[in-house]
């Protein structure tokens, strides 16, 4: 497989132009879904703030602090599945459109390396989801900082990071599964994605992943490049 194989010097500029063209197309295609997800995530964070505020109204601050800092309760636990659901929704919206009547062939026929084209599509999704998740994280941290000390904010950041990572893995796994034509590889993709997401979303304790989270950051590029394999399989499938 020849990933990013635009090797001639004259093609260096071309790659950035291809990337910007794919981003142009994807931004138009996914705009309604992107807008919807930002809206829903904003609504959820506002609701989360209201719930948090209610905790302090119903109980004394000392009691809430005790629960959070000593008992390890997390007042933002409802956030856990939001990144996963957002990522799956975005992945389906972005790639089902391409798979409808095999429209992706239009992109694959463009005069560029096929793997790069598909990877640029996935990269767009990753960029969007990273922005969405950054918004969620910032909103969460601002909200928590309003009521708690910075240590709790840091702990919340480390606790929620695996949830957001699960979203990114679900997006990449979903993309792989949608593009891959071979049933065996498709199934393998489902299983691997499921196991990774399950592990990341199994709540152990606050900041449980603090020391091992880097392993998942190493896995993420591997998952990303596996999409190039599915693109290659798609092009060279047997009828």
């Amino acid at each position: 497989m020849n990933m990013f194989s635009l090797s001639k010097p004259g093609h260096a500029l071309r790659r950035s132009s291809v990337l910007s063209s794919i981003f142009y197309k994807e931004s138009i295609k996914t705009f309604p879904m992107a807008l919807g997800l930002f809206f829903l995530n904003t609504c959820f964070m506002i609701w989360n703030f209201v719930v948090l505020r209610q905790l302090f109204i119903l109980d004394h601050s000392e009691v809430v602090w005790y629960r959070v800092m000593n008992l390890g309760q997390i007042p933002y636990q409802d956030l856990m599945f939001i990144p996963l659901m957002s990522a799956i929704a975005f992945c389906l919206f972005q790639f089902l459109e391409e798979m409808r009547d095999a429209r992706i062939r239009i992109s694959l026929h463009l005069p560029c390396d096929s793997s790069s084209i598909v990877l640029f599509h996935a990269f767009f999704g990753l960029v969007f989801l990273s922005l969405l998740f950054s918004f969620d994280i910032i909103a969460l941290l601002v909200m928590l900082r309003y009521y708690f000390p910075s240590e709790i904010c840091f702990s919340a950041f480390v606790t929620t990071l695996p949830w957001f990572l699960a979203g990114l893995f679900a997006y990449l796994g979903g993309t792989f599964v949608l593009l891959e034509p071979q049933i065996k590889r498709k199934s393998l993709g489902v299983v691997i994605t499921f196991i990774i997401c399950l592990e990341l979303l199994s709540f152990h304790s606050t900041a449980y992943y603090e020391n091992i989270i880097y392993v998942y950051f190493i896995l993420l590029p591997c998952m990303f490049y596996s999409i190039a394999v599915s693109a290659d399989d798609y092009r060279n499938r047997w009828a």
Partner: peptide
């Protein structure tokens, strides 16, 4: 190579 797919496939969100 210019390729016209069956059913005039196009990105219809454009």
């Amino acid at each position: 190579v210019g390729l016209l797919f069956e059913r005039h496939l196009a990105y219809d969100f454009f």
